[in-house]
Design a binder for these strands. Structure first.
Lengths: 110, 110
DNA sequence: TCTATAGTTCGATCGTTGTCGAACTATAGA
DNA sequence: TCTATAGTTCGACAACGATCGAACTATAGA
C-alpha cells in the first residue's frame, strides 16, 4: 500500500477542486476535517458504507484537497490548507467560512 | 417571456453554487462576464450551439450566480457579485482571483 | 499463524448532467 | 405583416459519477 503522494501545487486544477467540493458528502468531510484537524476514515464515515467513503476520499486526495498519512493500518487525513491557500487564495477560507470565520487565516499563516 | 427573477440571497446554496462553477464552460462564462461587466448571450457563446449555452445560463441563473436583465430581444447577463459576496464572503474573489486580483473588492465595495 | 481491523478495488446499477439538433417564442425593424 | 434575430424548450443520447455489496490487501495484536 503506497504512501499516497499528493499532487504538486502547480498541478492543482480549479475545476477539479471545485468539483471535488461540490458534493454534500465531501463538503461535509472537508468541514469536519477542518474542525478535527486530522482524522482517520472511520471517524468521518458515519453510517455510510466504507466503499462509498473510500471513493470520496480518493476524489479529495486526487484533487489535492486532502493529504493522507499512513500509520500502520490507519489513514490519517488532513486538509492541505497551506497549499490550497497559496494556489487558490481565499477559496478554502470561503468554503470553511460558514463554520468559523477567521480561523483559517490564523491556522495557515503559522 | 418572464423577467427571470433571481433567487433570494438566503436561498443560495453553497453546494449548488459550487456545482455551477465546477464546469469549464460555465467557469469561462463567469470569468469573461466578470471582465466584461455585462454581456448578452451571443457575446459569450463562442462556437457552441445556442441550446448548450442556454442550458449553462440557466444553471448559472438558478444557482444565483447570474442575473439576467431582459431588454427587447436581448438578455443582458451580469454576475451577482454583491449578493454572492454577502452570502459567501470571498468565494467569488477566489474564483476570479486568477484573472485580476484585487478588482473584485474594489468593484463590490462601491 | 490466526484473527480482527482499516481501508481499497472491482463491478454493477442508476440517476444526473452535458451536448446538440429541431422546433418554438418573442421582439425589433422593414 | 413579413423577416431576421435572440434566446428558450424539447427530446434523445452519451458520458460521468454516486452508491453499495463483495472480494481483496495489508497491518497489528494475540
Amino acid at each position: 500500500m503506497p504512501c499516497y503522494d499528493s499532487p504538486d501545487l502547480e498541478k492543482l486544477d480549479l475545476i477539479t477542486v471545485l468539483r471535488a467540493l461540490a458534493d454534500p458528502v465531501r463538503l461535509d468531510i472537508v468541514q469536519r476535517l477542518y474542525a478535527l484537524g486530522e482524522a482517520n476514515c472511520a471517524a468521518l464515515i458515519g453510517s455510510r458504507p466504507k466503499s462509498s467513503m473510500s471513493h470520496h476520499f480518493q476524489v479529495l486526495r486526487e484533487s489535492g484537497i486532502l493529504h493522507t498519512r499512513i500509520e500502520g493500518v490507519q489513514h490519517h487525513n488532513s486538509l492541505r490548507l497551506q497549499e490550497l491557500e497559496s494556489r487558490f487564495p481565499g477559496l478554502m477560507a470561503s468554503i470553511l467560512g460558514n463554520i468559523e470565520a477567521g480561523q483559517l487565516r490564523r491556522q495557515t499563516s503559522s
